Computed example of a mutant assay.
Amino acid sequence: MRAVVQRAFGGPDVLELREGPVPEIAADEVLVQVRAAGVDRGVWHTMTGLPYLGRLAFGLRRPRNPVPGMDLAGVVVAVGARATRFAVGDEVFGCGRSTFAEYAAAGEQSLAYKPAALTFVQAAAVPVSAVTALKAVHDAGRVAEGRRVLILGASGGVGSYAVQLAKAAGAHVTAVCSGAKRDYVLSLGADRALDYAAEDFADGRESYDLVLDIGGNPSVARLRRALTGSGTAVIVGGEGGGRFSGGLHRQFAALALSPFIPQKLTTLLALVRSDSLERLLPLIDAGAIVPSIDRTFTLGEAAQALDYLESGRVRGKIVLTP
């Protein structure tokens, strides 16, 4: 089969398309013929090996999994001896192992049936980003009707879902993005858009019940200034902070401070499981959240896809197809 392979950490040029064996599956896994694979920020981190602290998870000197990728949508072509949820021929979406390939192994607990309303490309754009947004907006943020929500990084993969989820819950949403993407985030349902280059979300003019910081780098103090006295800030990912810890230093600082103040400062690690995917299905079926696809690339164009992701021009998600 064809797969995108990286033998070392580095920029997009470390990615190359190679022929390799079809992966073997464990007893509780299924083999999926990948029709589409989503590209998320986590893939960029595993490709570059940055921040260095992350190498404890994805390999110290070289990638533990030479084929990157987590998101997938496709068709089950083989079933492990103890796998019972899916059968050969089922159309599924979720997370697998090394999904930038024509075939990928996936645990049953990380998959759900593909919504009939979505194409494979659309479905592949859902798992990591939409589940992260779901857990940030609902589980950590406890959004409710009438709440004022501020979303930093609203035009990206997670942000585009966060805007839609917060609006579906009845919140008033202010989206922070570049001026060039203002119309885009408003089209997702945001009530107001702030250009981060020209407007300061923490200038004291507005306060918010919930601030979602998705891939940003403002200080914890600035996030607090944007909150109401009892508001909640959820830090999702984050950039900056140097090559060793990246944005993790802000998350550690927020968690350390939160017990001593009336505001709630928290973070999350969103694992994609079938129950979380299934929570999204009614919203997808109702059209309350719609995957927003910026561009698709082929497997052979994986390097260009990651280069485009890093450019900052992406609106929503990008997806690889065989």
Rank of each mutant, 00 (worst) to 15 (best):
G242E: 13
G242Q: 13
R243E: 15
R243V: 14
G247I: 01
G247F: 02
L248C: 11
R250I: 07
Q251N: 12
A254E: 06
L255H: 13
L255D: 01
A256V: 10
A256W: 12
S258W: 14
S258Q: 14
S258T: 14
S258H: 13
P259H: 03
P259G: 04
P259L: 07
F260M: 12
I261S: 06
P262E: 11
P262Y: 14
P262F: 04
Q263P: 01
K264V: 05
K264D: 08
K264T: 10
L265H: 09
L265R: 03
T266H: 15
L268Q: 12
L268R: 06
L268P: 02
L269E: 06
L269M: 14
A270P: 10
A270M: 02
L271Y: 07
L271N: 03
V272W: 02
V272Y: 00
R273H: 13
S274H: 12
D275H: 15
D275M: 02
D275Q: 04
D275G: 14
D275A: 01
S276D: 15
S276R: 08
S276F: 10
L277A: 07
L277R: 00
E278C: 08
L280Y: 10
L280C: 09
L281K: 03
I284L: 09
I284A: 00
I284R: 00
D285L: 15
A286D: 10
A286R: 02
A288W: 14
A288S: 15
A288P: 06
I293R: 10
I293A: 08
I293D: 05
R295L: 08
T296W: 05
F297N: 02
T298C: 02
T298K: 08
T298N: 05
L299I: 11
G300W: 02
G300V: 09
G300Y: 07
E301S: 04
A302R: 00
A303M: 12
A303R: 04
Q304N: 11
Q304F: 07
Q304Y: 14
A305L: 09
A305Q: 00
A305T: 05
L306E: 07
L306R: 03
D307P: 01
